[in-house]
Amino acid sequence: MRQYKQLATRAILAGAVALGGEAALAAQVVVGQVAPLSGLEAAQGRAYAAGMQLYFNQLNKGGGVNGHTFALVKRDDNGRPEDTVGHTRALLAEDKPMVLAGYFGSRNIAEVLAAGLLEKEHIALVGYRTTELRAQNPQLFNVRATLRDELQKLTEHLATIGITRLGLYYEDGPGAKALLEAVDEAAGKARATIAHKAAYPAGTARAKQAVDLFIKNPPQAILLVASGAAAAAFIEQYRSAGGAAQLFAHSGADIEQLAKRLSEEQMQGVAIAQVTPNPYKISTRIGKEFNDILARSPAPDVPVSYSMIEGFITAKVIAEAVRRQGARPTREGMQNALDAMESYDAGGYLVGFRPNQHNGSRFVELSIVSGAGRIRQ
């Protein structure tokens, strides 16, 4: 009998140690974001963060993923590339994130890569927005369609309505050459021509020179591959100067930011490529999930937007990569899990990565602003 009790006691102790070991393995997954939380692109940066936080809060209420909860640590770079690098370096040293997410800006990301921070720290950056085409990088994972996909969608749509004489307004950043080549390629496939191209200085919203060019040489339509602030400045000045060409913007222009700054008359007929499902509708599973969680949560400090649902999708992808690692998620494990995520269904929105293929989606649709200032697909 005594021997039986001793064996039983040992079994209980062993179980307690095992449970304690599992509890010890459960930890907080820190997600680091360095983004424009103030400045020209603050609306998008803050909305992206709000979308990630919305999903992480929901997970944490249910105990997290494999017992791991999530914490989003944010730092404001005000859109300045040098601050993006400095804050990223400090965040990596002080907050020890397992993954980075929600970065903005072509030059900002280019300088983070040039500084070697991602490679040195073996850390992935999941979800980002730029106004250029980026070469594949082992540490960069995007959850949206590429700019090339957006350009093809825009030029194909224009071709179907007989518009073939186009203008291009774009950011004169480090990826401008690749962008111009992609625009020419997309236009060629649609049997269109880019009659005039006008750049604005990277990191600014100085549009006057481009406006003057397109007023003097009017195309049928103008493609805007610009930040939200730069696109808004162009539309405002172009319409005020009497410009009548149809305007088609890539997703980075942010339809909510445009609608907030511009009048209904200035916005009428503007079309914007969108790379996520509509956040205002529940016609998709992810749209319903997003809105259901919103309804159960405290009101966010920013309006609902496409940037917000993109952040929500990014958080889902990160959580899935953590889930696939089991009890011991790591920085290296995040990258391996993402590389193996060939077809993840985030709710009717598919995200897929493979080694050397880190553009996660091909989803693109057009939003058009009606005469009443409302968004319609």
Rank of each mutant, 00 (worst) to 15 (best):
L7A: 10
L19H: 14
G21V: 13
L25S: 12
A26I: 03
L40K: 13
R46N: 15
F56M: 05
N60R: 08
G63N: 00
F70E: 04
L72W: 02
V73A: 09
D76L: 03
T88W: 07
L91T: 00
L91S: 03
A93W: 00
E94W: 02
F104H: 06
N108R: 09
L113N: 03
L113I: 15
A114M: 10
A114Y: 12
A115C: 10
L117A: 09
K120R: 15
H122R: 15
I123R: 08
T130Y: 06
T155S: 08
L158T: 02
G162A: 04
T164C: 06
T164M: 01
L166N: 05
E171A: 14
A178E: 13
E181A: 12
E181M: 06
D184I: 02
K189L: 11
A192I: 08
I194V: 13
Y200Q: 02
A202I: 00
G203A: 07
Q220H: 11
A230G: 13
A231W: 10
A244H: 11
H250W: 02
Q266S: 11
N278I: 06
S283M: 00
P298T: 03
R323C: 12
R324P: 07
A327F: 11
R328V: 06
R331F: 12
Q335V: 09
Y344Q: 05
F353T: 01
Q357D: 05
H358Y: 10
N359V: 15
V364K: 09
R374A: 14
Q377M: 14
